[in-house]
């Protein structure tokens, strides 16, 4: 690691131990709730304060968000349209299985 970068990371680690500040490791515990919108106002302020001083977490958060969005949109049209037909043998298998089921009362 670049010596300057090593010093910088040590300073950042120390900064994270100050009141109302987080280390990146502590920041991680808030990420899900941040996206869920369930952080308290105080937690949200601390979370955002960390983002102001940490480009690694800022980059991480953007990549995390992008990954979630990719997953969420992967199966949505028009990228992955649901085929508009059902295998005929499966349709017939379900109907046949239904016919062989005992009739239920009302």
């Amino acid at each position: 690691m670049n010596p300057d970068r090593g010093v910088l990371r040590k300073l950042k680690g120390l900064l994270g131990k100050m009141p109302m500040m987080l280390t990146c490791q502590e920041f991680e515990d808030f990420v899900l709730d941040y996206f869920e919108g369930t952080l308290t106002a105080k937690e949200n302020a601390i979370f955002k304060m960390h983002l102001l001083v940490c480009t690694d977490c800022k980059r991480y958060l953007a990549a995390y968000k992008r990954s979630v969005e990719l997953g969420q949109n992967l199966f949505k049209e028009p990228n992955s349209p649901v085929p508009d037909d059902m295998p005929e043998d499966l349709v017939q298998a379900i109907l046949a299985a239904k016919e062989s089921e005992p009739e239920l009362g009302p």
């Binding site: 990371r9 280390t23 490791q25 991680e28 690694d56 991480y60 992008r66 990719l70 990228n79």
Partner: peptide, 23 residues
């Protein structure tokens, strides 16, 4: 994370809009 609790994160290039990426 390193021993200081700092994140080890590679550089990402996220410039393109999501719709474009999904194409």
């Amino acid at each position: 994370f390193d021993a200081n609790g700092c994140r080890i994160e590679p550089m990402w290039q996220i410039d393109e809009p999501l719709e474009k990426v999904l194409e």
